[in-house]
Amino acid sequence: MQNVVLQSSVAFAQTSLKPELGFINGMAIANRYADPDVESRHAAKLTICDVSCLSRFAIKGPAAADTLKAKGVELPASANSWSRHDETLVMRLGSSEFLLEDPIGVQQCKGLSEQLQSGDGVHVVLRNDASFILSGELLDELLAQVCAIDLSGPMLADNRLAMTSIAGVSVIVLRQEVAGQSLMRLWCDGTFGVYLWETLLDIIKELGGGPVGFNQFFNSN
């Protein structure tokens, strides 16, 4: 791809916030919206961060699990759960669909997408995710306003993930502990990205939080 600048599906919603831009995986992303101490306060209180730019690979079908295992990828054993293979996040959606996501600096997904094609019982799934990190002490209050099921309790414990609806949009959610802080990860179809970002950010601002750029959670270029 020569000179191709990819867009986060959420970019349109962020331009008015005038972020400092960076590039990850060929995609223009918002690195920072405000001074680091402002962003740190947001992260502690309640924040949303657009991580759509991370590299992903997805595959489904009766032979999907075996195909990944043959490539040496360790998979979560039960349906609707997640695990880590090295640093790659491996999600089992239902029982025979997998979504993998690399943090920056890891090339596992890129490698898999180059090596694997759709074939017998295996279907490589192209994706256009809008993906967010949500965190902060008021996270449960935010979720209470946008989700009808109880995401604070056992539903997402023990490495479980859920496919549910947030603010009327189908999403995948899971919780992670990072440095003692509880984070929520969220993926939705990119065409809903702007709507979901704006809807969540409105509530976040009302509750006294704000957005943070990619730099808050990752050390990028």
Partner: peptide, 14 residues
């Protein structure tokens, strides 16, 4: 309440 009205935008919306 807030009245959630999801909408979808294409990549060329802007």
């Amino acid at each position: 309440g807030r009245g959630f009205h999801p909408h979808r935008l294409t990549a060329m919306h802007e």
